[in-house]
Write a protein that binds this DNA or RNA. Sequence first.
DNA 1: CTACACATGTAAACGGTTACATGATTAT
DNA 2: ATAATCATGTAACCGTTTACATGTGTAG
Lengths: 188, 188
Amino acid sequence: MGLRHAVLAALLDGAATGYELSKNFDVGMAEFWHARRQQLYAELTKLEQAGLVSGREIIQQGRPNKRVQSLTEAGRAELAEFAATPSDPQFLRDDLLVKAYAVDVTDGSALIDQLAQRAEQSQIKIARLDRVLARLSGNDEDAFLADAERIGPYLTAVRGRMFEEETIRWCTWAMQVLRKRQGGTPDN
Amino acid sequence: MGLRHAVLAALLDGAATGYELSKNFDVGMAEFWHARRQQLYAELTKLEQAGLVSGREIIQQGRPNKRVQSLTEAGRAELAEFAATPSDPQFLRDDLLVKAYAVDVTDGSALIDQLAQRAEQSQIKIARLDRVLARLSGNDEDAFLADAERIGPYLTAVRGRMFEEETIRWCTWAMQVLRKRQGGTPDN
DNA sequence: CTACACATGTAAACGGTTACATGATTAT
DNA sequence: ATAATCATGTAACCGTTTACATGTGTAG
């Protein structure tokens, strides 16, 4: 099961509406999970029916009413059970890699452009993640990791940061390789 | 479009049957794309109808007939166009990260076990990728990258290797953090 | 007056996984 | 005998994406 447990995990940060969750899925969990708003609403409906979250309607003036969802005990239990079952190994699945695989019969310059663009995007993500990490840990990472009540989001943000850095490293290397080839064979 | 272009890219390595492709998707493209056999047969049917691949029936004795698919010019053109259009930024989507995110309210030891297991799996993948890389490049990587006709599969295998190494580094670090916490707070 | 934030949903289409079906040959 | 390899598919299901639908309040 996928989104189900991601939603339950997100609700550990506190009760939230579908609308609020959809933002957290663009920030806190953004590195490892995306979900559209519609999907979250649908999932929350299912989770509520299953008793894993409980929703409270909040009537508002001047703006639409909202439904705040919080984890139930059953939800926590479900999450704990999920955490204890082994995970499948994962893989990348990235369009850019398909393009790299095909580079020998396609336009190398186009790939170089996309590698540069991807590296830039990763740089931006790193800057954002650094702010997230600093906000979570303050200025003493070791102390934070040793004592804080909640380190899960920090662990995942670190993974995200490593991933983005690795992406930049690979893009840079691949660009170098491709540029050398273009420069070295002016006959084409 | 996803699988569509992954299949076209895989066919750059030569004409193949759905059955053969499904193996290549377990080896050459394994780092960045998985596909079930059924999915490949379905996709090849669609691609053939669209004229992007052309199949030739081969009658065999003593074993089932097979249908060898090869890229058409239209298929190459489609792949080139795909390679030239910008890619969406990607992300991870990994159960293990959801579990890490939730670690503060679940069983830390269970996560440590899974981190260890993941690190082992990555180690195995690295060994396999090293064989792939060595087979592709021979003993002189620089010369290979400068002169070889086909370097796409090498570029992607390198990305896969980096990714697995990074996975191990993160797992090791996270395990250390979690172990220190368990050791340091014997009151729980 | 334009755009964005708040707030929740439905419907259709697409993509991927799981289960089922068939049947000969070859290796242990 | 048993299992694996060769070889292709269908059907049902579930998860995700895209498009559509609605309406107020606030900031530029």
